[in-house]
Write a protein that binds this DNA or RNA. Structure first.
Lengths: 188, 188
DNA sequence: AACTCGTTATACCGATTGGTATAATAAATG
DNA sequence: CATTTATTATACCAATCGGTATAACGAGTT
């Protein structure tokens, strides 16, 4: 593994365990077994490191996410695909998911908000598009697409949190269940 | 307002806006218009300040919470009461709720985790008790009380997040809706 | 062999961190 | 009025913060 990859790996571990603000650049460099200027050579500054951690760990997620959010006139199946994308990320990279999912709801100012907010909005906007497109097929969800996007993400996160706590497994059945339960609340 | 109250108020604002770790004790003292030793006189150390912010802002919440979690053989009504307790806190003290709700899911080490974890567990345990008691009346929720406690909190938080974002209002009707939708998923 | 280029280390910068020793002040009590 | 007691400020501590100037290092290239 290259020095750069080791730095990214250790940064993620420390950011998750102690928080971004509480993690000094020195500590990351020490954990990676290199000097501080090496870190600055690769990432420019602390925020660059944060950005790199986010980008690398979300690379394949975005690919799957963009594919899943292409609405195909079957809202429930579309939501199931989306849920599975999140489940996959959680299973493939639980350390990162646990960290990222807490940051998207953190209203702090500073580096974290500036870097994470656009990533969250991109998810929210794509989900809103899905519900907006679906509302042309189903008349029952007038103007609530924004609220649906919010709470659907909440439902997914709730399952993943249970998974990360060892309570459940993230099966296709689980994705099926939460999507059906979610849509029931809208249509009924 | 006493000096102590001003310190608690400013600490909450800064903790929420910039995060606990990123907020220096000096900044809190400056914001309150007093010297640093004044802060240490009242709270001992930074963690004592954190503890005091949590305790004071949750004082009336716990009273209402303990009353609401007394299961009375009507699971839906009990859940509604609980939801309203959270809604009340969010409406009465949105600044605090926005801060606290992000911390309970943050798996960091350090002061925040040590102070917040027991508060979260107390909520979780009380909710588990509710579902456990209810499972004696309803046979359909065998051994899943822990998972229900998790996801019920998730549902509530999802509503409150939507409220804090200006999307919805936290009415009694909203509490009714989410509890019914939640229980449907369990019984069906 | 000379040279370049990407990578890394030593040592340092000013600013800020959490925390404190000392003492001046204010109010309350005798 | 004198004394205590609670409250506040000035000034400081070692440690760490994010960030950098300088240069040594090894691998290729010419």
């Amino acid at each position: 593994m290259s020095t750069k990859e080791v730095l990214l790996q250790q940064a993620l571990i420390l950011f998750r365990r102690e928080g971004y603000d509480a993690t000094g650049v020195q500590k990351v460099a020490d954990a990676a077994g290199v000097g501080k200027p090496t870190l600055y050579h690769y990432f420019g500054n602390k925020r660059g490191l944060l950005n790199a951690v986010l980008t690398t760990n979300l690379e394949s997620f975005w690919t799957e996410f963009d594919a899943a959010t292409a609405y195909n006139h079957e809202i429930v199946k579309t939501l199931e695909s989306i849920a599975r994308v999140y489940f996959d990320l959680a299973k493939r990279n639980p350390e990162f998911y646990a960290w990222f999912s807490t940051m998207v709801v953190t209203p702090n100012e500073g580096d974290i908000h500036d870097e994470v907010a656009p990533l969250y909005e991109r998810q929210l906007n794509a989900l809103m598009e899905v519900f907006l497109a679906a509302s042309k097929d189903h008349g029952n969800m007038k103007g609530r697409h924004q609220r649906y996007a919010y709470s659907f993400l909440g439902v997914i996160n709730s399952s993943v949190q249970a998974y990360l706590s060892g309570l459940i497994k993230l099966t296709d059945r689980e994705a099926f269940d939460i999507c059906h339960q979610f849509m029931y609340g809208i249509f009924s």
